[in-house]
Amino acid sequence: MKYIEDIGSYFMMLGKVFSSPTKTSVLKELIFKEINDLIIGSLGIVAFISFFVGGVIAIQTALNMDNPLIPDYLVGFATRQSVILEFAPTFMSIIMAGKVGSFITSSIGSMRVTEQIDALEVMGINSLNYLVFPKIVALLFYPFVIAISMFLGILGGWVAGVYGGFTSSASFVQGLQEEFIPFHIVYAFLKTMIFAFILATVPSWQGYYMKGGALEVGKASTNSFVWTSVLIILSNYIVTQLLLSS
């Protein structure tokens, strides 16, 4: 019963986010601020994780193929497939659910408990549009983050593979080009967009409708991470089933 209510209130929230917009000049400023906080502010950690995990994927693949019949270029091939299909879009998004998601929940949640949201409403401002809409727009840039993650993941794989002596640069690059299916890119970015929407809205919902004080803000942030990740994993499963298995 509670879940049905929650789902209902989530979609009602979305309806309000896109109605009675805030003054354009103010909205523009808010959007730039969110791009800075949510997108630019995440690049460092995304770059770091992507590069090293890409490297680990390459090393693991190389170490696991003892069979001489397996071609050398498999290291590059496997790195490309794992990074583009799953690591960058899905697992990066789970990490972002921890970083961006709990940031969104705690910042909106603390505005809720200190009556800042009430203050907006009393002034006649649609607080959902004011707070959530700029986040959704900012996360339209999320695919760029994932593109960077893909690039650095593969670069990390190349560096680890070549400089670790597991493969040659030429065969790694050959692996990258082997059996390349352009639709995989479409699939990866399509699900990235879905994850971006989840990342912007689910933590906002958690923060906006929370009750209580500072302690509850902490709890709401944890909840927000759990729910955002669960929804990302579920929608990943559904999208993959729909787009790749036919």
Binding site: S110, M111, T114, E115, Q116, D118, A119, V122, M123, G124
Partner: peptide, 12 residues
């Protein structure tokens, strides 16, 4: 309407 909240409610 101008409203002063009990806790201030300034935008931090």
């Amino acid at each position: 309407i101008g409203m002063l909240f009990q806790g201030g409610a300034l935008f931090d």
